[in-house]
Measured scan of single mutants.
Amino acid sequence: MAAGGDHGSPDSYRSPLASRYASPEMCFVFSDRYKFRTWRQLWLWLAEAEQTLGLPITDEQIQEMKSNLENIDFKMAAEEEKRLRHDVMAHVHTFGHCCPKAAGIIHLGATSCYVGDNTDLIILRNALDLLLPKLARVISRLADFAKERASLPTLGFTHFQPAQLTTVGKRCCLWIQDLCMDLQNLKRVRDDLRFRGVKGTTGTQASFLQLFEGDDHKVEQLDKMVTEKAGFKRAFIITGQTYTRKVDIEVLSVLASLGASVHKICTDIRLLANLKEMEEPFEKQQIGSSAMPYKRNPMRSERCCSLARHLMTLVMDPLQTASVQWFERTLDDSANRRICLAEAFLTADTILNTLQNISEGLVVYPKVIERRIRQELPFMATENIIMAMVKAGGSRQDCHEKIRVLSQQAASVVKQEGGDNDLIERIQVDAYFSPIHSQLDHLLDPSSFTGRASQQVQRFLEEEVYPLLKPYESVMKVKAELCL
């Protein structure tokens, strides 16, 4: 049975990233139509530049190519590739079939990587351009969430054990800070992308030097003109047959890092959902379990974690691919890159769409948070109580021993009897502590235990987050809708 299948058929496997999760716009960027249309555009740009620099290419040939950029006979191309065992030459023939007058000058002087690699770089750039505003929107939604809850005390956790208090907004800023680093890295790697350009079979530009009869300047002009037509500021000066596969490492490393950030955020949300302090959106008709109707599973956060793990592992592909590119190139890269580049971007696209949807509907339960604080705060307040007693004339050592005994009794009630923490009640009825009984409410005010959390939130948002989001103001209103 021949390899390949009808990918629109229910009898043929289709990647869930495309069929179930990723956005239509990201799927289109990695589609065959987008790819092969870009090949034709690159052939047109090459012909236009070659004509401008004096090669015998007519206006009629150029116009014929322009008129057929979208006229792609995919069936013919597939048949040609089956016959020739070469995808680029299959599309040269297919393009030439609908451009008979231009057929002889299509791909003039070029090698397969002229269309293959340059198209990949265009796709990487455009895919990054799709991700950047999506990530900015996630940051914006979380920034709104953090600002609104900047002063809401909550129990902090280290080692997932109760620690000092923080605020809900401050905790959210930990998430935002990681995503801001990801946004900066995505922008950097996007701006650092260079075009492969017009380089020939081993990167020496020998074929173009021959076409222009040894004119170095025209060869350099050709490279520059096509690079500018493709919208790049610069091209690699040095290439082998391909652009260095280190570029793929750079791009997928940034995406993998984004995956790590999203995994951490969504894990926190899942843990908070278990504590009943916070939940992701839950639709009115949504079913959490087929057997347990009360369940409210954090399905979206779980999906993000599941896909983020996949995204983090994909960076190993370009690392290994770059390491086995012998001399000017081997074909070890080809099949692998067809999979890992598309999957990385479709996965990143999915987790950003999902995280935006989550961040637009996060639900906080202040009463649950308050109750958990009441359970733990008495123990945390013991040092403040000791200091207040010393100020009232008591002995630190005597007070410490009193607190120690009462704390152990209260802990026994919590752990052995399943009761509430009654340390404060014990202190309130103990005559030894009568000098500070009137101060206990103040000493137990949760806001006095959150330090500068709310001020940190305000400063972080104003100095770091809002300036970073400013270039994306025009796209901030787009909502994230999930079908599944």
Rank of each mutant, 00 (worst) to 15 (best):
M380A: 02
L17V: 15
G203H: 05
C483Q: 13
M312G: 02
Q51L: 06
A411V: 10
Y432G: 10
V478R: 15
I249W: 01
L128N: 15
L319G: 02
P378G: 05
R309Q: 07
A90D: 00
C304D: 03
R329H: 07
I176F: 01
M299G: 03
L255D: 00
L307C: 15
H437P: 00
K295D: 04
I358C: 15
Q375N: 09
A230R: 05
V115C: 10
R374D: 10
R338I: 04
S306P: 06
E277C: 08
T354D: 08
A22S: 14
A411L: 09
A411E: 10
E462M: 15
I436G: 06
D192N: 11
I106A: 10
Q428F: 09
W45H: 14
M225H: 09
L222S: 01
E360A: 15
A381G: 04
V315W: 08
E80G: 11
F145R: 12
G156K: 02
T38R: 03
R459I: 15
M26N: 05
V262F: 06
V88E: 05
A90Q: 04
P366T: 14
V254R: 05
K35V: 11
D420G: 07
E148N: 09
M181L: 13
Q241G: 01
P467D: 13
G200K: 00
T244D: 03
L307E: 03
K367D: 03
E279A: 08
I351E: 01
D6P: 06
V315I: 08
E79I: 09
L108D: 00
L108R: 01
G109K: 03
M76Y: 07
T347F: 06
N297D: 04
N357F: 15
A291H: 02
I369E: 05
L53C: 09
L84V: 08
S253Y: 10
D182Y: 03
T450K: 10
H7W: 08
A411Q: 15
D215W: 09
N297Y: 05
Y243C: 07
G169N: 08
T204L: 07
D215Y: 14
L346R: 07
A143D: 01
L346T: 12
I176G: 05
R141I: 02
Q428Y: 04
T354G: 12
T38F: 12
D6M: 14
R459C: 11
T227I: 06
V262H: 04
S207N: 00
K264Q: 01
S448A: 10
R404Y: 06
F345C: 10
P100T: 13
V475F: 15
I436F: 03
T52N: 07
E383P: 05
Q241A: 01
S9Y: 12
S23T: 08
H97D: 07
E370T: 12
G231H: 12
D191W: 05
L179W: 05
A410V: 05
L307P: 00
S67A: 09
H91V: 09
P366V: 07
H263P: 02
W45F: 09
G394V: 04
I57D: 01
R426D: 15
R196I: 06
P293H: 08
S257T: 11
F28K: 11
L69G: 14
R338K: 04
M181F: 15
P133E: 14
R337A: 00
P24S: 11
Y472I: 15
A480S: 15
L275Y: 02
L165C: 04
W326C: 02
D349K: 02
T382Q: 06
M225E: 08
E328A: 05
R300E: 05
R149M: 14
A308P: 02
